[in-house]
Amino acid sequence: MTPGLGKDLVGLEFLTPEQIRLILDTAEPFKEVSERPIKKVPALRGKTIVNLFFEASTRTRISFEFAEKRLSADTVNVAASGSSVSKGETLVDTAKNLEAMRIDMVVIRHGASGAAQFLGERIRSNVINAGDGKHEHPTQGLLDMLTIRDTLGRIEGVKVCLVGDILHSRVARSNLWGLTKLGAEVAVCGPRTLLPRGIEALGVRVFGRIEEAIDWADVLNVLRLQLERMEKGFIPSLREYYRVFGVTAERLARAPRPLTIMHPGPMNRGVEIDSRVADGPHSVILNQVTNGVAVRMAVLYLLAGGRPELADAAKGTGGAAE
């Protein structure tokens, strides 16, 4: 019996290793759909999906939208500006209104931690968290894991270091949960002002210096440094951040072995990552983006009740000729 995912995907913290593997395995056959001349399969034909984005997003929203369209779902995008949200409607009212329109799924991005769970508890539709505050961004965590598995052939035993602003990062939390569940060793590295106090208790190693992290890791997942962290006094300047914590070609050259370089984007070149590294031979940053669509297709398919063992068949019945 394959375990189901439940109604919603709120975060990786509460998924079992089997459920995470199920999503990653289901994503494999969907990768190929995007390589076809006609990129469409009928798996979610007739399903209505709302992409509810209370925060600006380009990559994640487009990635979800492609995933939905390639599965033949009907989609509607709602952005915070220009909607009832900007007129002061509460999240619970938004939820009830969506419910009243009998939609099948909601993909939500929201600035408040817990917003996806809040919505999921109040509507019958499936809810997928596309990033809630500083909490989780589960599909990003999943696509990062799929990319590591593609690149290194495994996740178990791989040493992954998340670099940068861990304190405010939902990507960091989803990576941390997902990777540790699948047996990877996880570390974080960044200025102490941007690391949650006591994070060691979550089972991660903490590196105060990027050189130590590079010395230890197989994979660096370099997080975006938000400009406002400097304005709010967490770091003195972007310039100094780059000098002390920047992932540079010089620092990587001293590593005992080549490191796989990841970044969830959008990148600040010359702040958290050197262009030569981002564009270098060990960067898998664009593979992450490609995998994002496949992982999201898998999540949508599984939450809609699709049977994982039929994922291959589901995509095969599409219009594209083999």
């Binding site: 817990g114 505050g133 500083k134 909490h135 979550l202």
Partner: peptide
């Protein structure tokens, strides 16, 4: 409260 639970939930803590 700023502690492990706030770190996990992604909520800003009050030390």
């Amino acid at each position: 409260h700023e502690g492990l639970v706030s770190a996990r939930l992604g909520l800003k803590g009050i030390p």
